[in-house]
Computed example of a mutant assay.
Amino acid sequence: MGEPRTYAPPPGPSASRTAYAAAHVVADPSGAGVLDWDTTLAFRRHLWSHGLGVAEAMDTAQRGMGLDWEVTRELIARSGQEALSAGGRIVCGAGTDQLPPGPAPLDRIAEAYEEQLAVVEAAGAVPVLMASRQLAASAQGPDDYAAVYGRLLRQVTRPAVLHWLGPMFDPALDGYWGSTDLDTATDALLALIGDHTSKIDGVKVSLLDAAREIDIRRRLPSGVRLYTGDDFNYPELIRGDEAGHSDALLGIFDPIAPAAAAALQALDKGDTTAYDEIFAPTLPLARHLFATPTYYYKTGVVFLAWLTGHQRHFRMVAGLETARPVPHLVRLFQLADAAGLFPDPGLAASRMRAWLTVQGAAP
């Protein structure tokens, strides 16, 4: 085992970048409930303590992969209350996952979004209008997206974040914004933003395509942020270039929160050398964690949370702990150790050895 890298908690959030960690949820292994609320909320306090905002009820929290709307509703309410107590920043996903799978009338999709928006706004959070599987299955083209999102944006009480989640994260979202041609889809998204600029805080782009993200970023209206969701290229996108930078709303910030916070603080000081040195060992980890099939990255996130000591078990909602094979998680353990992410290497080694024994793979 390597030595842990230690980072002092920063005095507050980054001054130069807005950064959110999309947070995982902790299952209740007893079966008495769906979530272990105390541990789930404690992890959010951990993220806030490092100056990061929390992106709640996003795909990292197993939206669409085990977490239903009723539990999600409670998660948003509880996290909103915790954010108020901790003085932490929070955004929450509003979607349409209370609807049955498959196509639905556009009015019904809009109503489902409105129901969830009301819950998010009641929690005091900034809403993230999540990409909708039902809308992807129902829309006939960009005009249908413009109609649904326009209806929502005209009524939000605070600027919202739009959400472009690529098919590598959810195959049901292929062709989002009305076309499988990414140039056409990009134009449709930018047209929507141009029509509702004052109601849009930013757009989260999760396409794992740095060049396209930079192109979108440079074409956004003034005041609209680009929140990178690119877990393969986040250091260069957040650092930015002469024409601007991306802010962050990232699943990888969940397991690397102390390092991410330290890198952002270095960037605040203009110390790009330290910024690069802190992020460099996390990048191989991120690229492995989000390897194909990318949508199973949540398994690795929870595995690392267990090894790091943030929860007492490696169990997930809907049994998703079995989604990644043993060699994948072994390599993840090695990369996390190389990045110095285990504050207690002895604990991580003990838990890893026990897990390998159960898998029949102990050395």
Rank of each mutant, 00 (worst) to 15 (best):
A286F: 02
L75A: 14
N233P: 06
L67R: 06
Y227D: 13
H288C: 14
E321Y: 11
A27R: 12
T273K: 12
T60L: 01
D107C: 02
S85T: 09
L182D: 08
P13Q: 15
P343S: 08
A361R: 12
G300H: 15
T282K: 13
C92A: 15
L264I: 09
N233D: 02
F253G: 04
T184C: 15
G202C: 15
T186G: 11
F303T: 08
A112M: 00
S198P: 01
L47G: 00
Q98N: 04
F253M: 03
D183A: 11
W355A: 15
R219G: 03
G319M: 13
Y275K: 01
A185Q: 14
R45P: 02
A348G: 09
I238H: 03
Y295L: 14
L192M: 14
I90M: 10
G340M: 08
T157A: 14
V358K: 13
Q334E: 15
H313R: 13
H163R: 13
L165A: 13
P9W: 05
T228S: 11
D201A: 14
P345C: 10
G223I: 04
A23I: 12
G93R: 02
G340R: 04
A110D: 03
D230I: 05
H288Q: 14
A21H: 11
L347F: 01
R108P: 02
P105G: 03
V326Y: 02
L226Y: 07
G270Q: 10
H328R: 12
D144E: 09
D276K: 12
W69Y: 14
H46S: 00
T357I: 08
L190Y: 02
E111N: 04
D68W: 07
V301N: 03
V326L: 11
A125I: 03
Q334T: 03
A339T: 01
Q116E: 05
D201W: 07
G202K: 06
H46C: 00
T40R: 07
Y234T: 05
I76E: 05
G244D: 13
A131M: 08
D144P: 13
W306P: 05
L267D: 08
L249D: 14
L332S: 13
L267I: 09
P363L: 06
G229I: 02
M65G: 05
T60D: 04
L129Y: 01
A125H: 02
A86D: 04
T40Q: 07
A361Y: 04
L208G: 06
G64T: 08
Y176L: 02
G270I: 09
A137I: 11
A22G: 00
D247K: 04
A104G: 09
A349E: 15
Q81F: 03
H328K: 14
L99D: 10
H310C: 10
A286K: 01
A110S: 01
L207R: 09
P284E: 12
G178M: 04
L129G: 09
Q98R: 13
V71F: 00
L135Y: 03
V34S: 06
Q116C: 06
T272P: 13
V156N: 08
G88Y: 00
R225K: 15
A42R: 10
A257I: 06
L335T: 13
A112R: 03
L237S: 02
